[in-house]
Amino acid sequence: MPEFLGPAIARDRLRVRLRELRESRSMLVEQVVSAVGWPASGLGDVESGARTIQPFALESVLSFYGCGDGETAELIRLARIAWTPLSQARHRLTDEYQQFVGYESEASRITHYQPLIVPGLLQTAAYAMAITATILGARPTDADVVTVVQVRRERQRVVENRLTAGDLLQVVAILDEVVLRRWIGGEEVMRAQLEHLLHQARQAHISLIIMPTAGGGHAGLGGVFELLEFPDSDDDDLVFIESATGDSLSRNPEVTAQYRGKVDRLRAEGEYGDRALRLIQDVLDGR
């Protein structure tokens, strides 16, 4: 099966390879941009990931480096993929969140820990609108609420489209039991959300883990996070941390290792499979 590759990872692979090509020739950024006639900041911005290089501009750099036809064709392919605009760019999102959505759309395993609400990839539209309006203190029809719900639905649609195309991604959703018992949007909305969770938890690509309240404290109580893992060892895993004061995205190996450890502990202590399904059904049955 061909590898799934989207703009975020293509951009990362391209910038890393361009830096390797330059450094292997013991050249400074200024020397390269002077030779190919770029603005002084151009190549540095591309190598740092601050901007994406257009395919026609990349050709002049690769020609200057003396790259062979095979490598040139592959890097041009990456540039074309990287230049594809993300649909989320039309929404008013922070740079960090926009980057996160791009990487999430390409991860092979998405692990989302959420102690307060249903993880976004598993929310119904009605639940998403109700919880977003509550968090923002706004009406469900307000523009900011509608934008968040649209982006959430787009994230879900990306997963659906990848599965339809045969991409074997995995979604690990970890939530606290209290999330099931916090009735958001009224009884009708919440019952539909719980039934949706039951349905989703039976899908082959989803692992649902519930942290029971009777279990006391656990490693996830530090807050919301999403760990994005990629199949190629050359692509750095990422952690996205969401908070009320701002979002952060880290590819630091020490940070991602720390959160992989959190995930391992949560998986070991949480309820999953039939036990998780029974917890949801108990709430639906009023127990």
Rank of each mutant, 00 (worst) to 15 (best):
T94L: 10
L197G: 00
L279Y: 03
T132E: 03
L21G: 06
D247H: 15
T124G: 08
Q99E: 09
G102M: 06
V159I: 14
P39A: 08
G70V: 13
R90F: 00
F56N: 12
D45Q: 14
Y259K: 13
Q54Y: 13
A130L: 10
S63V: 02
D12A: 10
Q123F: 09
S60I: 14
M129Q: 14
Q200F: 01
E195K: 11
A35G: 06
S41L: 06
E242N: 08
R109F: 05
R162S: 10
V32D: 11
L175V: 03
A35E: 14
G120H: 08
I206S: 01
G6D: 07
P7F: 02
S41E: 11
R92A: 02
Q156F: 04
L197E: 01
V255D: 15
V61I: 13
P253Y: 13
L249I: 07
R17I: 02
G216K: 13
L93I: 01
K262R: 10
G185Q: 12
V159W: 13
G49L: 02
D274Y: 01
F240N: 13
A219S: 14
M27I: 11
E242M: 07
P55K: 11
E187W: 14
H205Y: 11
D144S: 13
V263A: 01
R265F: 00
D176L: 03
D234T: 15
A40P: 13
L5E: 15
T84L: 03
A130Y: 06
Y259I: 03
R11V: 01
V159D: 06
T134H: 08
V36L: 06
T256M: 07
L249Q: 11
L238H: 07
H196G: 03
G223M: 12
L284Q: 01
G261F: 04
I280G: 00
V159M: 10
E106S: 01
S60H: 12
E3W: 08
R92I: 01
T132C: 01
E242P: 13
V179A: 00
L266A: 02
W83H: 13
A107S: 13
L163C: 02
H112I: 10
V61H: 05
H199V: 08
L136Y: 11
E188K: 15
L227R: 04
P253L: 05
L266R: 12
D285I: 01
R153I: 00
E154R: 14
W38E: 10
D237L: 04
V32Y: 04
R260I: 01
N252T: 15
L279E: 02
V36A: 05
E20W: 06
L75R: 11
V16C: 05
G49I: 00
G137S: 04
W83Y: 12
R153E: 11
V172G: 00
G223S: 09
L194I: 07
